[in-house]
Design a protein around this nucleic acid. Structure first.
Lengths: 212, 212
DNA sequence: CCCTGTTTAAAACATACGTTTAGAATGACA
DNA sequence: TGTCATTCTAAACGTATGTTTTAAACAGGG
């Protein structure tokens, strides 16, 4: 049950990398510790040694990058706020939505750094009961709370309830886009191709701006 | 490997009902045949007897209701088309979107008939690699194809590609709404409550109409 | 009634799973 | 160099899994 947090050898990191990938493609139950350890080229007991349990591993995969992503969101919000203040105007709806969606979409499309895997992991983790995702959400909720006043300033007619519903919907579009990006070509009989991440992000932001 | 299709005893139906519920709440791998059979109060071997395998069971759960739902969608489309023709006008965007979203949302919120369980099952099945969902999608794709000309007539400026992207986004909002309906109250600090299905549907359709 | 096909039942099979244990290797520091 | 905590390894444990097998119960028509 003891969970090590000290500066791990690279074995620990390798386990996180590998399991992040496997959890991104399969459900919690369908990914076995043995699959993880053999692919990470570490001993079977390493997972239990470093993370205490399979569930501990899963949560560690989440934690490793979550804070950074939400930090990026707040950074973009802050940037937009500053730019608006110096320009003597309000933050635009598009800036707000873009601040929320750009980090995950950007990460998603950045194959090089392996962040894309994490995003797919995240989107899947939302649905998996095995991972205690209410705690996960709480971190995101805190971030979204910071956005709410801006939405209200832009559209004073909107109640808090309306705003939360729409944020909720937005996350829906995003997670679905993430999880089914490859399927757009099937759905469209190959008419659609997945382009750059900016293209995807713009389409998504367009859609969400319209929704708001 | 033989799959029975004849008029089954109610054991077969009971297995479908129970596993539909279990698969709606957990991943394919996390639901065991033993959990299904014991809850359905049938013998362990019944699943393999009736459906050949666990995967066969999963697909049978899907097939049992899929055709009906897509039929409802087409029926609503047809209805809207007729009403428009007699009125001497075009089918509206809202009618189109409503035709696509109403059946699943309606089913989702109809606790009585147990259809809601199927919708949650469906939304989850989209993400589960264990179930060969490309075949599943093909059935939906055929239905959506019937909608495309209408979208084009409403907005001739839109290319096929744009339309498929937006349909894709719409499905995203819907599946997310379905899977996380209970979470809206957490996200909003209990400001939002889940009301009637019409209310949910209207919010959803509003959002999607805006997106289009 | 017996025969035939279908359905249910119990048991066993082989394998895969998460976890634990006991000990070897390693490396830092005295 | 010897000590000690940390890291890694190999093996085993107990349990749960999907599936198969064998045979019993059942139903309907000749």
């Amino acid at each position: 049950m003891k969970i090590k947090k000290s500066a791990g050898s690279d074995a620990r990191e390798r386990i996180l990398d590998v399991s992040e990938g496997l959890f991104a493609n399969g459900s919690f139950a369908s990914v076995s510790i043995r699959a993880v350890t053999s692919k990470a080229d570490v001993n079977l007991s390493a997972v239990n040694y470093y993370f205490g349990s399979k569930k501990g591993l899963f949560q560690s995969v989440y934690v490793r990058r979550a804070t950074l992503m939400n930090h990026e969101r707040l950074h973009l919000l802050h940037e937009a706020d500053e730019k608006a203040q110096t320009g003597g105007r309000e933050v635009t709806l598009r800036e707000l939505i873009s601040a929320m969606l750009t980090p995950p979409i950007f990460w998603l499309c950045d194959e090089e750094k392996g962040l894309s895997v994490y995003i797919r992991f995240l989107a899947r983790a939302y649905l998996d009961e095995a991972s205690d995702m209410d705690n996960v959400l709480r971190q995101e909720v805190d971030v979204f709370d910071r956005f709410v006043p801006y939405f209200q300033k832009i559209n004073p007619g909107l109640g808090e309830e309306d705003i939360y519903w729409r944020i909720h919907f937005m996350m829906g579009v995003m997670h679905h886009t993430i999880n089914h990006l490859h399927r757009i070509s099937l759905l469209s009989h190959k008419a659609c191709k997945v382009g750059t991440w900016q293209e995807t992000r713009d389409r998504l932001v367009d859609f969400c701006c319209g929704g708001f």
